[in-house]
Every structure is written in structure tokens, then in C-alpha cells.
Design a protein around this nucleic acid. Structure first.
Lengths: 209, 209
DNA sequence: GTTTTCATGTAACCCGTTACATGATTCA
DNA sequence: TGAATCATGTAACGGGTTACATGAAAAC
């Protein structure tokens, strides 16, 4: 009974919710489709899958050729397809519903957001607003610490600090937009691409390379 | 001979370079003064300090009252002040000078930047440019993966991806400015606050709270 | 004189990676 | 048929936190 990794468990259940998959494919989806997630290694993924099976959230089905029964004698490892059980699905819904203080942390927030499509609006609001206030606290602390030490810092340290704060401020503004969109109900956070209203002069895709 | 933690070691040597300190204070500086660094716990910091002493980069001096010699009999733990040795200082310079592939990674880059004040311009350029190309690779991958999967993704996932890319793009632009400033020699990355030239329409400090 | 805050330390654990080992499938 | 890629697994280690234990100094 090891490996109870919050994010990974969450992400795996969420991805498997769409369709059954085997580990190898699952990992690729983790690294690409859900953009945010970092690259988990097989050394993390496979043991995790095993424990999820042990808990009853997943079932493993031998795929490929042998129809499930004759395969596991002698050697013959076959492709293992993981499928979400009803219990697993229920567990995932639970995870989505509970928006405890952890849910505002960087990674947790990322996964949760990625699955907003399956989340009730009320919970989405809680998560977004919780995240925002978390970031605002962080800003407060940064500002305070900066005010205290400003004089003693060299230009580079200062610039780093300034850039950091600006990034957080940008994320807060982003959240504000999302919350507003969510509140007024229109567009599902989309309506960009096509001359989006409510977007100030931002020019995406211009790396100035 | 345990705990050889890249960033922490780097940061400790760098901070101690300014003035001797004891662990407790060191930790506070780590969390605040150098804004970027995350909050290392004592469980990480103290063992690390011990190994740095063992390598000869630091010396520990008993501070407070007892003048160093009579203290460590029986109990009587006193405040321990850590001081950078000449060898330690030399090692720190070495670390600054070498800008290997690790130096472009998120955390490594952060520490290195924080100590740019002690770094030669040539090395600063290598680090900044290396970081930029690292980020551009990342962007490339994100764009590719997005192009491949765009259709199958729901609006929220898409929005997350878009926001992620925009953040990276912003950092690239930031690096471009820094590199330009570095190249032309003027201002040491400062000349903001006062109607900075070379800054496009960015409006800092407006959280829209 | 007792509560806070400062200050140091350690052992147990957690989450994850690396390096390695193995085998099946595809494709030139 | 042999190389590349797909696919699964594990043992050893790495870097960090938590919880705990201890004690000195300051503040009330």
C-alpha cells in the first residue's frame, strides 16, 4: 500500500474516465494532452497504477491477442489496459467535489482546472476564487518582504523579484477574467480566437524571436 | 557524505559570501530576501550546512557568549555562526563560472540570476541565452503538441494550455530585454521605474483587485 | 515565572527519478 | 533477421518535508 500521489492519481483517474488505456499511452497523454503536467516516469506511473487497481478504482484487462485468461502463465506479458471501475469513477467525482485548501496549490490547481469540464460550476467558482486569494496572499508577502529589504538588494535580485511579482499579478488578472466569465455564464472561458471581448490589449503568439 | 543539493548549496554559499550567519537567519533570508527560492525546511538546511563544513567550504563558530572553546562540553548548544572559508569562496566562484546545461533549468536559473551581481558579463550572457533557447524549445514542443491534439481538447484544457504558453512567451520577451540591456551595457537591467525605454505597453502593478 | 520566539538537530517518511532488466511488435 | 519502438516492471537512490525532541533567550 504505497504511492498515494495526489496529482498523479487524480490525473490518471481523469484521463481513464474518457477511455481505457494502457500505461504507456497514459504517460504520453500525461505529458502532452494535459500540457500542464510534468513528465512522470514509468517508475512512478506503473506502481501507482498497481495501487489504484488494489484500491478497486481500476481494473486491468490483458489486451492484444490472448483474450484475458490464457495469458499469464509462464512468461508472456501482454499489454495491460486499465479501465475505470464504477467505484473509481465515483472516487474521481468525490475528488472533484472536495475543494480543500490543497486545491489552491500550484499543481493541484493545474489538474483540477484541466478537469473543469467535468466539474460543477459551483465547485469551479470555489476553486478559482480560492486560488486567487492564495495568490493574493503570496503577493502580499512578496510586497512586504520587498518593502523591508529593498535597499539592501542589488539590481539583479530586485529585477528577479519584480518579474516574479509581475507573473503572479498576471495570473491573478487571468483568474479574474475566468471568474467573471464563469459568473456571467457566457462562453465557458472560450470566446477568444474570434475578437474576444473582455480581453484587453494582449497580443498572444509573438515571441519576438 | 549526504545531501549535495545543487540549489541549496549554491544559495547558502552565495548568502554567506555577504556575511557570516547562523542557520536560522540563513533560512529566513532564503525564503524572503532572495524572493525566488522556496522555503527550505530546517530538516534540509542543517544537515546541508554540516556537509558544507565537512567539505571545508564553511567553518562554524560558536557565537553568543562562550568564546568558542568552553562551550561544547556536556550540553550547552550555542548559536552556531557559519562563515565562508577561502576555499568555499573559491568554490562558489567556480559554480558561478560554469554554465552547464543544468544552469538553464527553472530553479538553477533562478539562483544563478540572483547572484548575477557577482558574475562576469560573459557568463551572464551565456546563462541568459541558454535559458532563452531552453524556453524556446519548450514553446516549440507545446505548440506542436497543441497542434496535434487541439480538436480533442475541451475549452478548459485549451485555455490552460494557452495560458501556459503565454507565460513562457512572456518570459522569453523578458529575457530578450535583459539580453539586450546586457549587450548594450547600459543600466544593469534597471532603468525601469522611470519611463523605461525599450518597454512595450506593459502596465505593472494593477492587480484589478 | 511562564509563555514566545529563537535556535539546533534527527529519524521516519514521501514522492519521484535513474538505471537497469525484460519482452513484444513493427518495419527496413 | 536485426534494429527501432512499444510496453512493463523494479531496486537503488535523491532531495526534500513532517513531526518530533531539545534547549536558550527574550518578552510579558
Amino acid at each position: 500500500m504505497s504511492r498515494r500521489s495526489g496529482v498523479l492519481e487524480f490525473a490518471v483517474l481523469g484521463l481513464l474516465r474518457e477511455s481505457p488505456m494502457h500505461g504507456y499511452e497514459l504517460r504520453k497523454r500525461l505529458n502532452t494532452s494535459l500540457g500542464v503536467f510534468r513528465a512522470f516516469s514509468y517508475g512512478t506511473l506503473y506502481p501507482c497504477l498497481k495501487t489504484l487497481v488494489a484500491q478497486g478504482w481500476l481494473t486491468e484487462e490483458s489486451a492484444s491477442q490472448e483474450p484475458l485468461s490464457a495469458a499469464p502463465l509462464g512468461g508472456r506479458r501482454a499489454k495491460i489496459v486499465y479501465r475505470l471501475t464504477p467505484a473509481g469513477k465515483e472516487h474521481f467525482e468525490d475528488l472533484l467535489a472536495q475543494s480543500g485548501p490543497d486545491a489552491w496549490e500550484d499543481e493541484q490547481f493545474g489538474v483540477r482546472f484541466a478537469f473543469f469540464g467535468h466539474t460543477e460550476r459551483e465547485v469551479r467558482m470555489r476553486v478559482l476564487e480560492g486560488r486567487r486569494s492564495r495568490l493574493e496572499e503570496r503577493l502580499e508577502r512578496m510586497r512586504a518582504s520587498l518593502a523591508r529589504t529593498r535597499e539592501r538588494l542589488d539590481d539583479y535580485t530586485l529585477e528577479l523579484q519584480r518579474h516574479g511579482m509581475e507573473s503572479v499579478e498576471r495570473e491573478v488578472r487571468w483568474l479574474n477574467e475566468l471568474i467573471e466569465t464563469e459568473r456571467t455564464g457566457r462562453g465557458r472561458a472560450a470566446d477568444r480566437d474570434a475578437a474576444g471581448p473582455a480581453r484587453e490589449g494582449t497580443d498572444p503568439h509573438s515571441t519576438t524571436t
